[in-house]
Simulated assay, not measured.
Amino acid sequence: MDTEESTPQPIEPAKSDQRCGLVALVGRPNVGKSTLLNRLIGYRLSIVSPKPQTTRHRILGIANRGQGQIIYLDTPGIHQAGKSAMNRQLNRVAQQALDEADVVIQVIEAMQWRDEDQQVYQALENIQRPRLLAINKTDTQKSKQELLPFIAKVTGAHAFDEIYLISARRGDGLDRLEQGILKRLPQAEPMFAEDEITDRSERFLAAERVREQLMRLLNQELPYSTTVEIEQYQREGKMLRIGAVIWVEREGQKAIVIGAGGEQLKRIGTAARLQLESLLETKVFLGLFVRVRENWSQQDAALKQFGYTD
């Protein structure tokens, strides 16, 4: 008896339950986005200082969890339109992260909703992706009950998918925030290897550690007139030799950065070197030089040279 030959049917691959996606951390300057990123990935990636606008770049940090991979994007603080080329660039970087993200988290301070917070919210209004609100620095309140009227006022006027009370400094509430992120990410395989923390180079991290000390040790507006460029990055046995140029905008600023007898520059270099040795786990020789480029922060060409445009 003839039998009809059956055609084998292709077996569909099982769908992975792993999740992976980009999460943008946005907010006005100085609400704690960089501290939050560092806590979430368990690594001191973004530089931190008490001064606003410390973050000038999009910093990508990777967190691998059992349910998937979360790729955080720390962004410069969105602020009211500035006149300088640098300020316009910072806002562009933040907006680009919003356009890329699968989930957006607006970070604000407990008990504060300022005009700049409203500006950030308006930038999110047309985004058709999950929008979460992280109310940071809740450890500054004696009781969570004090926050209830503030939360009611903010959520009554603004639409978010979920609200999270956190303290980035202490790590409070971050487990719940992370679970809220993971369930909203698309099902996808990891984009990065398990041992990767960021897509930034060691040269970039070295420049940022020097700039962090400029933000911390220089007074008033001077840190905003400085940037750092790595000219030498060379391994010599167990020693890493780094040569960095601190660029300022005026001759008078150069004298301040160097200080009497070179003492200020020495303090900056020592603090940055110790940070780099801890970060890179190797002995570091750090040579610092100070040079002048008039009004570099106003020039698109200079911003490109110093790595502020991708």
Rank of each mutant, 00 (worst) to 15 (best):
Y233G: 01
T155K: 14
G237E: 08
F306R: 09
T3Q: 14
Y121Q: 10
T55R: 07
H57N: 11
I242S: 12
G82C: 08
A188G: 09
K254A: 05
Q298P: 04
Q179W: 00
K238H: 14
A152Y: 03
R129L: 04
S34G: 14
E277C: 06
V292H: 02
V93R: 09
A134H: 01
G68Q: 04
D74L: 07
Q122E: 15
L174T: 15
E12S: 14
P52M: 07
L265D: 07
Q112F: 01
F192L: 11
D102S: 11
Y224N: 00
E100A: 05
N64G: 06
P76V: 12
I47T: 10
Y308F: 07
R267N: 08
N64D: 13
R131F: 02
Q305H: 15
G287Q: 15
A157F: 05
Q9G: 07
D115R: 15
Q253V: 02
V48E: 01
L286C: 09
E178T: 15
F204Q: 07
L182S: 10
L133E: 03
R200A: 14
D139N: 10
Q122K: 15
R56S: 06
E4V: 13
V120Y: 06
P50M: 08
E208W: 03
Q112P: 00
E277M: 13
K51W: 00
L37G: 11
